[in-house]
């Protein structure tokens, strides 16, 4: 079976780079970028099964980025990460995210792995 290919997008570089490193140690092919603009560049020459997006980023939010990535890569799946304090805050802040998969920071890597499998299994 092919390894899962994941693109991580978060403007907190020290967070997203370390998370990518930890996923690599677990056999996931994880790339990371620190902005929505870089993510849109990245998908021009790479394919991903899944994108893990921070909700609040400069210029283009994770919610808007999801829409843009989905246009280019209709098969790509998404998980949101949010720094909001609670699920309630997250839903209040993003009406579109109601049906989406998401994790509240700090992210536990086992929960992320579980969510990733759940999202991809749903599509298989």
């Amino acid at each position: 079976m092919n390894a899962i290919r994941v693109l991580l997008v978060d403007d907190e570089k020290e967070f997203v780079s370390t998370l990518a490193e930890r996923l690599l140690l677990r056999g996931i092919e994880a790339d990371w970028v620190a902005s929505a603009e870089e993510a849109l560049e990245k998908i021009k020459d790479s394919q991903y099964d899944l994108a893990v997006l921070d909700v609040k980023m400069p210029h283009i939010s994770g919610i808007e980025l999801k829409r843009m990535l989905h246009e280019h890569c209709p098969d790509m799946q998404f998980i949101f990460m949010t720094g909001h304090g609670s699920e309630q805050d997250f839903h209040a802040g993003s009406s579109e995210a109601g049906a989406a998969y998401y994790l509240v920071k700090p992210v536990h890597i086992d929960d992320l792995m579980l969510k990733m499998n759940e999202v991809l299994d749903r599509e298989r």
Partner: peptide, 28 residues
């Protein structure tokens, strides 16, 4: 206060990943 809590969450997230990577390195 919402903005401060959001920023603190990011600090915790970075510390969490770094501590996690230390655990991974120990396991290796």
């Amino acid at each position: 206060t919402a903005s401060i809590s959001h920023e603190l969450k990011n600090v915790l997230a970075i510390l969490n990943e770094n501590a996690g990577l230390l655990q991974d390195l120990c396991a290796m």
